[in-house]
């Protein structure tokens, strides 16, 4: 994110004092850090040393310094001491009457430097793991203690039912934490696809077995049709599982009581296609734009699955895309809703 034009000083950027002839007369601590040059070696040299030559933006900055003119915001590439180039946001502010004979202050902020990115990623990663541990520890304590409590023979059936209600609520919190962690991992880019040769049919079948009890509770029938012989994909099995689980549990949650859910495994071109169809209410026009965004909960969604987090499809999409695939849906009156995702098949190189 580039800094706001009016707010450059609030960023931990570098401040450089430059004289009218372009010579550097002041070099702040942050300048040492972001450009790599020490104060000793840079004072007295031309400011253009750090700017990429022959770039329109560099000329604009140099010209503003020479003329002592204000330049509120300008992005330019800079050469750091280590030879690497990074994009910086600059502001040139005239400084008349400065004791060090500077005619301009140059404020620079590393916009997308590698260093900045790595630092951000590290902060995000640390946050993720700390959050996981901190939230999950008390949730585990509640979960395990309740289990022990429910096994106690002195607990009456009514009490056991209440304990079970607490247990179910706690499980919901655990799922929410899992979803939040998944989302942050996808966003931090730390959820990397460990792709290998996998049998899609096996993944689909094991996920079906896992979710069958949920479907049974709603007296739904799940059918599985295999329409291809090609079911070896090159993908991260955990990601694929996550994507399929989310799509299938949605079909169960949003499909009607006693309805039918059709899972079809097919192939088209270099991709394996997995689709899940339910004959529930169609996705309203108002929901379509935001369907794959995080925390989106439409009116229908809230009514049919009050416990949803609004993260399922966001995670499914991120998981499918991390595998190099695509996800889409069709939802038409009288036809129900079908979510399909494509994931690259394993192709033998000859």
């Amino acid at each position: 994110m580039p800094p706001k034009k009016t707010n450059l000083y609030s960023f931990p950027g570098a401040v450089v004092d430059v004289a009218g002839d372009g010579k550097i007369v002041g070099w702040g601590k942050n300048a040492e850090r972001v450009f790599g040059y020490s104060t000793k070696e840079i004072i007295g040299r031309q400011f253009s040393v750090v700017l990429s030559e022959n770039a329109e933006a560099s000329r604009k900055i140099i010209s503003a310094i020479r003329k002592g003119k204000r330049l509120p915001y300008c992005e330019a590439f800079c050469k750091k001491k280590d030879g690497l180039t990074a994009k910086f946001a600059f502001a040139v502010l005239p400084a008349k009457g400065n004791a060090r004979r500077a005619t301009a202050y140059v404020v620079a902020y590393n916009v997308d430097g590698k260093e900045g990115k790595e630092e951000m990623e590290k902060i995000q990663n640390d946050f993720i793991s700390v959050a996981a541990h901190q939230l999950r520890t008390p949730l585990t304590a509640i979960k395990w203690t309740l289990e022990v409590f429910m096994e106690d023979k002195n607990v009456t059936p009514t009490q056991r039912e209440r304990l079970n209600d607490i247990y179910v609520s706690n499980e919901r919190l655990i799922y929410l934490v899992n979803d939040l962690l998944n989302v942050s991992r996808f966003q931090a880019g730390t959820r990397v696809a460990n792709k290998k040769k996998i049998n899609i049919e096996e993944i689909v079948r094991s996920s079906l077995r896992l979710l069958l009890p949920n479907a049974k509770r709603k007296r739904q029938k799940i059918t599985l049709k295999i329409q291809t012989q090609k079911s070896i994909a090159i993908a991260d099995p955990l990601l694929l599982n996550e994507a399929f689980n989310n799509v299938l549990s949605n079909a169960i949650a949003y499909g009607p009581e006693g309805g039918e859910i059709a899972v079809v495994l097919g192939a088209k071109g270099a991709n394996c296609l997995i689709s899940v169809h339910n004959n529930g209410p169609i996705i309203p026009e108002s929901a379509r734009q935001k369907l794959f965004t995080k925390f989106y909960r439409g009116e229908t969604e809230r009514r049919l699955k009050p416990s949803g987090t609004g993260l399922g499809l966001f995670i499914a999409k991120a998981a499918v895309e991390a595998n190099g695939g695509k996800i889409w849906y069709e939802s038409r009156p009288g036809k129900g809703t079908t979510f399909t995702f494509a994931t690259p098949l394993f192709i033998m190189k000859t």
Partner: peptide, 9 residues
């Protein structure tokens, strides 16, 4: 037996 679940860990 941990509550950390990062792939690298």
């Amino acid at each position: 037996l941990s509550n950390l679940g990062q792939d690298e860990g």
